[in-house]
Design a protein around this nucleic acid. Structure first.
Lengths: 170, 170
DNA sequence: CGGCACATGTAACAAGTTACATGATTCC
DNA sequence: GGAATCATGTAACTTGTTACATGTGCCG
């Protein structure tokens, strides 16, 4: 459902091909809404069929450059303003926590230690990403930075929680 | 993939029917791994077919009470210790943030305000859940409380972030 | 002229959602 | 005896993953 809107959102900035969008997913949206190549091409076809986007230009090697239509922009705005965000956060990381009782305390602490490392790694990756991006004054930069800040705070929160949790296990 | 293990985890504590498990999902696991009724019954059948669980007793109204087999416990432990947690956190909430530039600043702030309220609500719900649960000394209580603490910290982090983010928008 | 990056697609499967369908027991 | 709850299942559909398949243009 949201992949559709992620594509509309990226096309709102400027036209792009499926291939272009794939690369942008891998960098900017990978942490928020990962998608595979096959899913993206399928979704782009559907969006074109329903008139949300259209082929603005065709290039070499069968390249199709899509642009957002007016209809697509309306749908993007509708999604942003009218649909309720899902609090529906599936987390296999947290799910495991419920069942750590079937392991030994040492193993359970081991798992939490893994989470500490994971969070530290995540924080580092985000800092590197931050430095590698050529931030601008445009909208995507402003909001991209805000999203990145979320990631940093999230990882810090999780690291502190995991440290606290490990100490709870006797 | 994880629904399977969630069911194994709950059955590790004590035998239960699909109906029982459904209710336990709705209370304890709803925030972490929501599942529908139809999905659960299908998964239980599969788990029984592969010998991870077995029907220990049959009750009135076709009730089937499942227990974890030794094989199932082994698989649960394997999942807990050997599989890498996915950092793969799809979040439509954060996805929207990237595209707030297509809205007016007022609308964008409106969205972030919604997130603040969502987080406050989430925090309250968790506090109520905390009070409604009859915490014990058993494993599920210990780890359940740790998971709940995660939820509280998560909501607090998100609220603070959304407040900060709203202030960033000129 | 060979390899790499560009570029798009399809097929088979697994996981998740929504809606429908049915029946048994308990309790008032 | 009627309603609520207990209890399980199926069907159709959407979303997401993995693997396969194919071809083009550019650059050294």
């Amino acid at each position: 459902m949201s992949l559709r809107h992620a594509l509309l959102g990226l096309l709102a900035e400027h036209p792009a091909s499926g291939y272009d969008l794939l690369k942008r997913f891998d960098t900017s949206l990978a942490n928020v809404w990962p998608a595979t190549q096959s899913q993206m091409y399928a979704e782009l076809s559907k969006l074109a069929d329903t008139g949300m986007i259209s082929v603005a230009a065709e290039g070499p090697r069968g390249r199709k450059e899509y642009t957002l239509t007016d209809e697509g922009l309306v749908e993007l705005r509708r999604w942003l303003t009218e649909t309720k965000p899902q609090r529906n956060t599936r987390s296999d990381i947290l799910l495991r926590v419920f069942f750590l009782g079937v392991l030994t305390p040492e193993q359970a602490r081991g798992y939490l230690t893994e989470l500490i490392e994971l969070s530290e790694q995540g924080e580092q990756d985000l800092r590197r990403l931050d430095e590698s991006i050529d931030w601008d004054d445009d909208d995507l930069s402003v909001y991209g930075r805000i999203a990145l800040e979320y990631g940093l705070r999230f990882n810090a929160m999780r690291r502190e929680w995991a440290e606290w949790a490990a100490a709870q296990i006797k």
